[in-house]
Design a protein around this nucleic acid. Structure first.
Length: 165
DNA sequence: GCCAACGTTGGC
DNA sequence: GCCAACGTTGGC
């Protein structure tokens, strides 16, 4: 078992980088700091789900983005702490994101668990992201980009981290 | 499989 | 609150 895990790493499951959006009124970086970790439930978009389900591994690093906020921007850092599992809210009739088409036998929605890493000393606003030349390729800056889970490059992650620290 | 209608996202 | 952009739904 240990050998298999090690070989998984040796086979190059390279760490990946992500940007995840949350509306701070619903769940902010402060909430995550308080909770230490949380299951990223409620995503009901297949592309975003697929990133979580297929591509995210424990240890991947996350830019925690506040959307629909004043101002919008990256508020801090998080990390994937558990691989994707079925999103429990899809089975919960009382949940706003309940999905009648999902069953425990055939779940539709998956989410990863993320853990708090840091709140930025300097909030990196969307405006700042736009003004930073080396970040011009960032997905979140593209017009009409609504995906709540987006891949980022290591260079983008490092740059935003530097701006925020 | 097309596409119009509708709902949602999210910056402004 | 507006509205552009996008995803989903459902009639055909």
């Amino acid at each position: 078992m240990i050998f298999l895990e090690l070989s998984g790493k040796a086979l190059g499951m390279a760490k990946k980088y992500w940007l995840m959006k949350s509306e701070p009124e619903t769940y902010s970086i402060s909430h995550l700091q308080k909770d230490k970790k949380t299951w990223w439930t409620g995503v009901r978009n297949y592309q975003a789900r697929n990133f979580m389900m297929n591509d995210m591994n424990v240890g991947d690093e996350i830019l925690f983005y506040h959307s629909n906020a004043e101002p919008p921007g990256v508020a801090g850092l998080a990390r994937v702490s558990k691989k994707a599992e079925p999103d429990a809210t899809q089975f919960d009739k009382k949940s706003e994101v309940f999905d009648p088409k999902a069953s425990k036998e055939k779940p539709i929605w998956f989410c990863v668990e993320v853990e708090f890493v840091a709140e930025f000393k300097n909030f990196v606003s969307l405006e700042t992201l736009k003004e930073t030349k080396s970040l011009e390729g960032m997905q979140v800056l593209k017009k009409g980009q609504r995906l709540s889970v987006q891949p980022a490059t290591k260079a983008e992650f490092d740059q935003v981290k530097k701006l925020g620290s």
